[in-house]
Design a protein around this nucleic acid. Structure first.
Lengths: 225, 225
DNA sequence: TAACGGATTTAGACACAACTAAACTTAGTT
DNA sequence: AACTAAGTTTAGTTGTGTCTAAATCCGTTA
């Protein structure tokens, strides 16, 4: 039986779509993400389209159908819950949990995933700050802004760090900029686009590659839901 | 890449061999255990033999090579550690952990398995009492005897319950005969082969099907290693 | 508008893992 | 010793998922 790889494709299509909500998801981008040739991606697209999990027209990229999105959200849910679990229960460094979760996410019975969720007391996000869909695929997206766009003087809380930027997770952990950390933007250089932040008493100058990969939320806006 | 099914076959060959150390492992027994046709098992045997993981000659069954046994022990280790983990950490009933572990055991990175082992403080056995091979595949087999063969009057400790006997695990749990339980054999009927045991203040009469599926060890033999 | 180049799709191949149906072996019985 | 039944293997098919190489499409640029 069973779709091992199909689910991976669906989840990757979902994530690529989420990253670029404007345009359709191209064959090439999926192939790169999955580490396969474009020909392989095309072949998979045909199978997924046959099963009505995606909409696919030649040379025009793909998009998820209702059914496809449901499956994709299930995978994303498992992935992010497992990441949380690996980090919080097994104390695996957060730089590694994404790769491990990729390996594990297909094989986990729903019951096991649900019990992990209960043990973790229904976490809202994975260790990198991405939201975890609930059992029905529902997803609550908080309002975040890129660190790049934060005006100087504002105190914010790190909410999310892009897990796929090479080397970023280790760097961010070293600087004390993990999700939950309180920081303040002290300067923004409009020429080289560096952002200076104060975190845990130390100042750091962050380049665009970093400030574009970190999302923040307004720190402790007083008594809102 | 990668052997999904091959590892399952190797582990099942290992277990069948362990259950009947006398004779070679037949095509049919593997096929039944794996839930596939004999033709499928034959096809897999050829692949495994090609890769020198088993020794296979037509119509004569199979046996594991050194390399095959090492792989098999790795799978068995993962399987039993995961069972322990599911039971002890996620509190999943022991009737279910075998099936779940079957599903999960391939996908787990070694690092994750090792951390589970550490978290569980290096358990000796799975929840049903089967020994867990160490990281190098080494296995310590304690001296056990079948409950069927225990002479009346002897106090023993339940050590192992066959997880593949339909309905047995639930039954045994209900009666208070789980691994670790202290029991005493009070009678043995040599005609119908029933065994009467006292466990937790209650007496139970056990048929052969049950007494052949439970291993025990001498209770608290005074200060031995 | 015609041509170029990069992205995409087709064509053809291969390995894995399963199936059914037919042929074959082996061991036990007559 | 021949027969038969159970168990095993072969033969041929299917579906997944991957690859390389060759064709094709499409937007941009000459």
């Amino acid at each position: 039986m069973g779709g091992l790889a199909r689910e991976d494709y669906l989840a990757d299509i979902y994530r690529l779509q989420a990253e670029h909500p404007e345009d359709p998801v191209s064959t090439g981008s999926v192939a790169v993400r999955r580490g396969v040739t474009a020909a392989s991606a095309t072949a998979m697209f045909k199978r997924l389209a046959r099963d009505e999990l995606i909409v696919y027209r030649n040379y025009s990229g793909v998009s998820l159908t209702q059914a496809g999105e449901e499956l994709a959200l299930g995978v994303v849910r498992r992935h992010r819950l497992v990441e949380r679990f690996l980090a919080d229960v097994l104390h695996i460094p957060w730089q590694q949990v994404d790769a491990y979760a990729d390996q594990m996410e297909h094989a986990l019975p729903d019951d096991v995933v649900d019990r992990m969720e209960a043990l973790l007391e229904n976490p809202y996000t994975c260790p990198h700050g991405y939201p975890i869909p609930d059992k029905h695929g529902r997803l609550t997206q908080p309002e975040l802004m890129l660190l790049r766009d934060v005006p100087p003087g504002l105190a914010v809380r790190v909410a999310r760090v892009n897990e796929r930027v090479e080397g970023l997770l280790a760097y961010v952990a070293e600087l004390g900029l993990m999700p939950g950390s309180l920081i303040r933007v002290t300067r923004r250089n409009n020429v080289d686009l560096n952002v200076t932040v104060e975190a845990g008493g130390r100042e750091h100058i962050l380049g665009l590659r970093v400030s574009e990969a970190i999302w923040v939320e307004r720190a402790s806006s007083p008594d809102e839901a």
